[in-house]
Design a protein around this nucleic acid. Structure first.
Lengths: 344, 344
DNA sequence: TAGTCGAATGTAAACGATTACATTTTTGTA
DNA sequence: TACAAAAATGTAATCGTTTACATTCGACTA
């Protein structure tokens, strides 16, 4: 379509051109070719040109497997994610991917299902030199189980982290963020505030529950146990079911804080299917600020995490670690923000 | 937590144990160790045990970079996706990932933004032996631009494909599927049926438009040009805007077919913000059947694609190609299905 | 013009596996 | 017991780079 390129002389398909072939063709040694390719300054311009010409006509491309063997790095990074379908992780992935690629690394997305066994097999890739390092987003319980056998491997924690662990991490202050969210509901006059929480194998779940608890007790309210539902997944259906359960209480909450936008969006659907209007009958606040949160009916008020930046920082920490294995683990806390919309 | 492992004797951290070290330790040659590790039958059980014991005590793990150089395969597959945030692709990825891993391959997710230049840089990874093959989900226009320079590389098309191209592919019959969707609306009595289509650089967009056209003309209706909106992206906001535009017509459609669930869900939001009720004021049918489609208000009627199976089949085709580069390109068409819900 | 010293280039040894091919051991048979 | 054949193991080349070290080339000085 764009432009005819039929008569452009193309290099032959050339199934396998080695650096030796280039050297022969340019009448130099392989060392010189390598130096040119790696941009070393010691090469005379004339030879450099000759080499580049040979590269061009032969259609040479470096064999990265060979290079990697020699330099002892695979330039592959693992990202261990409990659920690749969750949009929260998708956005973090974007941040990871962009920074990684800037530094010449490829990223492999690993679906762990938050399972220790599967995590172990993924970590094994590091031992087999298949990858140089890993970014782990799995529950802290899983991370603890891993830490023992994998202390000498290069990995960092992202979004989910235990400050007590000797591993670099980046995340937000979950307890404070949750407290902010619930306080916002309190300011709007709500007194009965439910919590849709997820599996408490997650440290962030325990922390956010704490924040919910903090805000309520500070307001002189005693949190009731039946205001709090723990789901076993983060999908829309789980949020839907949890909301249904909350609204079936004798004195149902007038507001609900969900620890994830996917749960919150499911909760919206659940409330609606019972004929409730939002935020009139029940207000909802989510957590994460995924793209979809602005498109729901009504748009979702939520705690915004800097997802992209979480990913970017995680890679940075990992590359720092790779560059200097001796340094003490770095810790980064990023700021959160309340995204005010119509659902609360 | 689970069980104390403190007193289990663990292999030393052992930063870099080579096959030679194992051979020395077991009093055999490297060849024998290699044979044991690769499960060859010629090894005497006694020696096998000795080798395995050495492997155990030394904590040896094969260095896959070295193995890959020798065997001339990287065991890495590329998946070229125009937009990793789109849940449709996320589900396909799952299918790809599971089959790939079953065969010992890792998968790298590549965000191309449907851009030819970026595609080219990704394909370059194949030339540099960084990856063995690729699965491309980009627009057929992009694929055509690629086909010329990359004919000798191993890649297949998935979901988006041009039957005329000499590349293996898997997908569905888009034209027929769209026709089915619109026919369903016709059966419900609709006569003015709008189309929210995406950028027609996509062949599937042109095909689905054809299907919409087919169904209408078969019913004796002349499709009007202003019933058809082309968006420039697939996100929720684009669907929202398109619906707003359609409902502003003098005689607005009573039903809308969107070529993607994300567009359809955005369209739901757009209709609602104008005070329209669905399906009473305007019916909506989507395409793909992503997980979210069942959780919208009302749940979305949509054309279900076998996303997971699309991914699984794509890998299968690619591995077949890798195994035998001579064979003619295989073509697979998978069945679609209408998922009937409340939005139409 | 010989000698010195950088700069430019070449030689060859890694990296850590796989695998023809050669060699040794074992087994079976006469 | 000796010998052939089969089974088990060993030796060393190879994959395609990078890079320490050795060598050659030129320009400049005395």
């Amino acid at each position: 379509m764009s432009e005819p390129r039929a008569n452009l002389p193309r290099p032959a398909p050339a199934p396998s051109v080695s650096i030796a072939a280039v050297a022969r063709h340019a009448n130099v040694s392989v060392a010189t070719v390598s130096r040119v390719l790696n941009g070393q300054q010691v090469v005379k311009p004339a030879t450099r040109d000759a080499v580049m010409a040979a590269v061009q006509t032969l259609g040479y491309r470096v064999n990265e497997m060979a290079r990697n063997l020699r330099t002892a790095e695979s330039r592959l990074l693992l990202v261990l994610v409990p659920d690749v379908g969750n949009p929260f992780y998708a956005e973090i992935m974007r941040g990871i991917d962009s920074v990684a690629r800037q530094h010449g690394y490829l990223v492999v997305l690993c679906d762990t299902g938050a399972d220790v066994e599967r995590e172990h097999t993924w970590f094994d890739l590091l031992r087999r030199r298949r990858a140089d390092g890993a970014i782990c987003l799995d529950p802290d319980t899983v991370q603890h189980a891993l830490a023992h056998d994998n202390a000498h491997l290069a990995w960092v924690a992202c979004a989910e982290f235990d400050p007590a662990m000797a591993v670099p991490y980046v995340g937000i202050d979950n307890r404070l963020a949750a407290r902010d969210a619930v306080q916002h509901l309190l300011e709007r006059g709500h007194r009965r505030i439910g919590l849709i929480n997820t599996d408490e194998t997650w440290l962030y779940a325990r922390q956010r529950k704490q924040g919910w608890h903090d805000a309520l007790t500070e307001a002189g309210i005693t949190p009731r146990a039946d205001w709090c539902i723990n789901t076993h997944s983060l999908d829309y259906a789980a949020g839907n079911a949890a909301m249904t359960q909350l609204l079936a209480l004798a004195a149902p909450p007038t507001a609900v804080f969900a620890v994830s936008d996917t749960l919150a969006i499911g909760a919206l659907a659940g409330a609606r299917s019972l004929g409730k209007r939002i935020p009139h009958d029940v207000a909802v606040v989510g957590f994460d600020d995924i793209a979809l949160a602005a498109q729901t009916d009504p748009p979702l008020t939520t705690v915004a995490q800097p997802m992209r930046q979480l990913g970017e920082t995680a890679v940075q920490l990992l590359l720092d670690l790779l560059a200097d294995r001796g340094r003490p683990p770095a810790h980064v806390l990023l700021p959160h923000r309340l995204a005010l919309r119509a659902s609360a």
